[in-house]
Amino acid sequence: MARLVENPDLAFRLARAIISDIALYNQEKVKDGIKNDNLFDVLADELAEGREHFYTRVAPDLPNRDHLYDRAIVDVMVKQAGKIESSIW
């Protein structure tokens, strides 16, 4: 069995990689979700699956584990979608 990630920086890097893959394979959903201000509803299944994968690779006692994954969503999907026309900005 692979060792679990215990370093917060490495865990955040892993979360960003997972979110990047989700964004890459769901570009239209991301675009529509940003446009219609329902990104988290549109990608609920994909984000939940990504979170489960993240949990299998990161130590459960890592402080702020959930926050790292959530921050990766904002950094990778939301911030980079700033060029998409939306009523939320």
Rank of each mutant, 00 (worst) to 15 (best):
N64R: 14
V74R: 08
E46N: 07
D75F: 10
I34K: 00
A44R: 14
I34V: 12
D75R: 05
N26K: 01
E52R: 15
G33D: 03
L39S: 01
R65I: 14
G50Y: 09
Y69G: 04
D61V: 08
F54K: 08
L68M: 07
N7C: 08
V5G: 00
P60D: 09
K35M: 06
K31E: 12
L39E: 06
Q27N: 05
N64F: 15
L47K: 01
L68F: 14
M77V: 15
I22D: 04
E46M: 06
G50M: 10
D41Y: 04
L4T: 03
L14K: 08
F54I: 07
E28P: 00
N38S: 07
D45H: 06
D21W: 09
R13A: 15
R3K: 14
N26F: 05
R71I: 09
N64V: 03
A81L: 03
P60C: 00
V30F: 04
L24V: 04
L4A: 05
D61I: 05
R65N: 05
S20G: 07
G50A: 07
D9C: 04
V30G: 00
R3S: 11
N26I: 05
N38D: 13
A2T: 11
N64A: 11
N38F: 06
A81K: 01
L4R: 09
I73S: 03
R3F: 09
D41E: 13
A59Y: 08
